[in-house]
Amino acid sequence: MDRDMDPQREATLRRRYLSLGVGELVAAAVFLVIALQVVLPGWASLERPALWGGLAPLLVILVQAGAYWLLARSWTPHATMPPALATTYRVFRGADLVLLAAGLVLVVRHWPASPGGAALALGAWAFGVVEYLNYFVVRLSYPVTRWPGTVTQWRTPRLMQDVRGSRPRG
Rank of each mutant, 00 (worst) to 15 (best):
10 E>D: 12
144 V>A: 15
84 A>G: 11
83 P>H: 08
51 L>T: 06
115 P>A: 14
109 R>V: 12
1 M>I: 02
151 V>F: 13
59 L>Q: 02
103 G>H: 00
50 A>I: 04
51 L>I: 00
21 G>R: 11
56 A>C: 04
98 V>K: 12
52 W>E: 10
67 A>N: 07
158 R>T: 00
3 R>T: 10
168 P>R: 14
104 L>F: 02
57 P>D: 09
24 E>P: 01
29 A>F: 04
119 A>K: 13
151 V>W: 10
32 L>A: 06
53 G>W: 11
156 T>G: 05
50 A>S: 12
81 M>E: 06
118 A>T: 03
26 V>G: 01
138 V>D: 02
86 A>V: 02
112 P>V: 06
127 F>M: 02
164 R>T: 03
165 G>F: 02
27 A>N: 08
168 P>A: 15
147 W>A: 15
22 V>K: 08
128 G>V: 03
103 G>W: 08
85 L>A: 14
140 L>M: 03
161 Q>T: 09
112 P>R: 11
16 R>M: 14
28 A>F: 12
39 V>Q: 03
21 G>P: 15
156 T>K: 09
30 V>C: 07
140 L>N: 00
32 L>Y: 02
156 T>V: 05
120 L>H: 10
32 L>M: 05
53 G>I: 07
79 A>Q: 06
150 T>I: 01
138 V>L: 08
135 Y>I: 04
22 V>A: 07
3 R>D: 05
39 V>S: 09
66 G>Q: 00
8 Q>C: 01
49 P>S: 10
75 W>V: 10
29 A>V: 07
15 R>E: 11
146 R>I: 02
142 Y>L: 14
75 W>H: 05
15 R>K: 09
122 L>M: 15
72 A>T: 14
17 Y>R: 09
72 A>Q: 13
109 R>H: 15
40 L>D: 06
38 V>Q: 03
69 W>N: 03
